[in-house]
Amino acid sequence: MSPQLIANIVVLAAIYALVSAGYVLVYRVSHVLNLAHGELMMIGAYILVATAGLFSGNPILALLLAAVSGLVMGLVVYAVLMRWLTGEAVLAAVLVTIALGILLRGLSILIWTTQQFYPAAIFGWRNPPVHILPGVQISVASLAIVALTIIVYAALFLFLQFTAWGVRMRAAGQNPLLAEQRGIRLHAVYALAWGLSTFTASLAGMLLSLDSGVESTMATIGLKAFPAALVGGLDSLFGALVGALIVAAAEIAAIQFVNPLLSDVVPFLVLLLVLAVRPWGLFGSREQLDRV
């Protein structure tokens, strides 16, 4: 296996991992699978298009604004939609997220049409290749995705382990009743989980759009990252990292050595294989199975 292939796997795994983090965050805390995650990621990228148009001379401001909007988006989704489903059947909440996805796709065409947008071009940025090793090149945007994925995961680990809010989130995920009795405000914790989830999704969408633009099919990438989260186990952030690596490696191996036509199918085949052996994913906890 050539070094370039390994670099490709790392980049693709970083993309899947960054997207998967949001699936895991929301699932771990509220046991809801958010099937509008890809659409929320796409909206995050479109928001960058909007802020880039407003502040084309000040990319840092535009990026910051878009990132903050990503966080706010999740809080709004929770406050307007998901909070009314707390305590309802989990399936109802999942179906609401499917409906939200359809709504967001329609809205994005309404606002941004079906045209392709390139925020990098608005900033006047090029996306040149970087030689990281002899004979191994990746684009600046890809390098940024890898770096950001590492930062985001490190920050999330620290946040969940060592901060008060992180502990509250884990507590709420493990036993909401007990957590509430101990004075944890569940709505605040869930809202934070949604906010962080769309924040990371937005970061992924923004970087992908800086790399290769955004149009209405970007939402589908959310679906492609989905097997990564499940392979690792839906309630494990570490699992999402490993799952992303496995799925990315399988996909790239299929493209390189078997048949590029399989690239859409392989992640789901890997998923079926893992679910057949360990239905709760590689690093997921077993009791989660009974909850869904």
Partner: peptide
């Protein structure tokens, strides 16, 4: 070489590498 790239691809580099 012959590549068929799916419409929603997160990264085109693997196809290009080939």
């Amino acid at each position: 070489d012959k590549e068929f790239v799916p419409p929603a691809t997160a990264d085109y580099t693997p196809f290009a590498t080939k």
